[in-house]
Design a protein around this nucleic acid. Sequence first.
DNA 1: ACAGAAATTCAACATGCGTTGGATATTGCT
DNA 2: AGCAATATCCAACGCATGTTGAATTTCTGT
Lengths: 213, 213
Amino acid sequence: MNPRSDTPQAVPAARRPGRPAGRRTGDPQSREKILAAAKRQFADRAYLGTTIRGVAAEAGLDPAVVHHYFGTKRALFTACIELPTEFLTALSTLVGTQDADLGERIAKLYLGLWDNPATGPQLRAMVRSAMSDDEAAEVLREFLTATVLRPVAAAIGRPDAPLRLALAASQLVGLAAARNLLGIAPLAEAEVDDLAAWVAPAIQRYLTGPAPK
Amino acid sequence: MNPRSDTPQAVPAARRPGRPAGRRTGDPQSREKILAAAKRQFADRAYLGTTIRGVAAEAGLDPAVVHHYFGTKRALFTACIELPTEFLTALSTLVGTQDADLGERIAKLYLGLWDNPATGPQLRAMVRSAMSDDEAAEVLREFLTATVLRPVAAAIGRPDAPLRLALAASQLVGLAAARNLLGIAPLAEAEVDDLAAWVAPAIQRYLTGPAPK
DNA sequence: ACAGAAATTCAACATGCGTTGGATATTGCT
DNA sequence: AGCAATATCCAACGCATGTTGAATTTCTGT
């Protein structure tokens, strides 16, 4: 503390500039601030392009606080891509019922998830990172097969159901990526309902139509 | 380096360990080796996950050689994603002709490009990096619209051609990403011709079918 | 009132990165 | 034979990163 210490030993103290250390008054929202900033950055720059320091800066905090709450960057990422389960169950039950409007209802629900501010960033972060990071790819693959493809395949009950669902999923993921990640103009500017009407027949045919040849 | 130097000055010389510096005998293939290694790594780990040092190591060279030939990492990347123009013109002329098999022929040609060892790595590198890097995304968007979407839209000549083509492209990109990047099982294991038969009706409908509603 | 837990700050470490500069060896031209 | 161009290696710089540790302040429960 004293500028002129009376002992010749190392004097690590004397913290003068910046805000003082220590706990802030009021209930701490740092964890939520970090999560929000991290979701935004993972969604925009994928796993490798996102830095702990950048997240901390956007949240207005010290990088060490991020580690205090989440430990490692990987743990922060997995905390960011957890989706509200309500949507997943809605999707599953929806696809379980077979009818002529199935394709359109799936497409609308799915595109709505991407435009929803509560779930869109997670989806963007997931797909963006899965394309450039092996571990994230495994997370997405596991998520797709476990919570979407497998249960729905069982509900449909055809022998070629896994292939059919994978085809439908590839169309939907490709559409969302082109629209929300790459920003291909005609898709990015289109309305959800119009897009759903366009892709609905394709989804419907993949799921319930006749096999080719 | 020398334990007993005869001059008290700095002695930078006396390079002893490792291979000697200087030009190798025989025609230098280093540029091609670097390109091959870089294509592989950009395709596998996207732009940010690829390091000059890693590329140099795979090519068995010093990182400085990479800079000697390509200057910067960005320049190396753009050198890697240049596609042979023959394929592009083949695609363009193919889509210019309208008939009932158009969807299937497009799908086969496109999926073939991804499985072709001469063009697959570039496509993988392009799409992978476009998902995580802004500049790469612009390259892909420009490539898609300029060499595929725009000319073909002109050939089709419908007012909603841009949207129709973007939808077809989203299906194809999504299919290739799920199959070649994410490794979704039923798609990764399927034959090109079978997949083409499945997606052909969707492509055909996007391009020439009736508009919805 | 007090002790422990929690929250925050700063400083630093070790690592890996892209990039640069200089030294050295080989080639090809004249 | 000699000389410019080319190719290669090594060492280092400056910077950013994830992560750790210690110090400090506030809060909470008793």
